[in-house]
């Protein structure tokens, strides 16, 4: 069973400190929601853990089953079992979805999937997320609507089967139907009980579809309150104001 341990993580962007010592442990079978106002550092946490070059780690550790991810390259982290569903997936011209997915699956598994098996998995994954099969031939994220991009992120999650998934505002910009489809995908992924989910969100809406075990409130670059699902209900009624005031 896998564990992601974030220990006293400090991160800066262009000499500006954004994360000021984050501690968080996600175990397989658990779903953690990170909630917080805009600018609190939620996305920075996601990208820093994944290894985006824009972020400088100034302190702390991120351990996946005891291995310090911060010592690894971006692709090595992914192969170690980390997945980041991006808030704004980039468009990559000329690279088809199917070609991209096959390359990713091959890299993660360490061997090329059998063509027929891969085609079957891809079709099942796309069906489950109500993605038009024609998507496979389109260029990666090019001309995709916001909802299509997010479904495609979850498709990758289901195909790559990471140990720990970090979902960065996967719910933003989705209408209710799309949110339901995407949530079902996340729930399929966590159904095995062998994977951990770190769900970053601004709104409580998605938590009605993807039930968290723990809720962490993020403000001013650190976790300021923790609790069970009931904490989300409190945020729903009271908002983030008390935290932003407190940290100001």
């Amino acid at each position: 069973m896998s564990t992601l341990e974030i220990r006293d993580l400090k991160v800066a962007v262009e000499d500006k400190e954004i994360l000021r010592g984050v501690n968080l442990t996600v175990r397989a079978g658990e779903t953690h929601a990170i909630m917080g106002p805009n600018g609190s550092g939620k996305s920075t946490l996601a990208y820093a853990v994944a290894g985006h070059p824009k972020y400088t780690i100034t302190g702390g550790q991120v351990l996946l089953d005891g291995v310090d991810l911060l010592e690894l390259s971006v692709d090595e982290r992914a192969r170690a079992g980390l997945f980041l569903a991006m808030q704004y997936p980039v468009e990559v011209p000329g690279v088809s979805v199917s070609n991209f997915l096959r390359s990713a699956v091959t890299s993660i598994r360490g061997e090329a999937p059998k063509l027929r098996e891969f085609a079957k998995d891809l079709k099942a994954g796309m069906d489950g997320l109500s993605i038009d099969p024609a998507f496979a031939q389109r260029n990666l994220n090019e001309g995709f609507s916001g909802g299509e991009k997010k479904r495609h992120e979850i498709l990758q999650l289901e195909l790559l089967k990471p140990k720990i998934a970090v979902l960065d505002e996967t719910d933003s910009g989705l209408d209710v139907d799309a949110l339901r489809v995407v949530s079902e995908g996340i729930n399929r992924f966590r159904a095995s009980g062998e994977t951990g989910v770190l769900l970053i969100t601004h709104y409580t809406r998605i938590l009605r579809y993807v039930k968290p075990d723990f809720v962490h409130v993020f403000a001013n670059g650190r976790v300021v309150e923790e609790g069970g699902p009931e904490l989300a209900d409190k945020l729903e009624s009271e908002g983030y104001e008390q935290y932003t005031k407190a940290s100001a």
């Binding site: 290894g51 692709d75 690279v95 991209f100």
Partner: peptide, 17 residues
């Protein structure tokens, strides 16, 4: 970054792009 974040090594990501 996007391709690497899916496990694809840097050289191969570059080739794909």
């Amino acid at each position: 970054f996007y391709l690497q974040a899916r496990g694809i090594p840097r050289d191969e990501a570059r080739r794909l792009v």
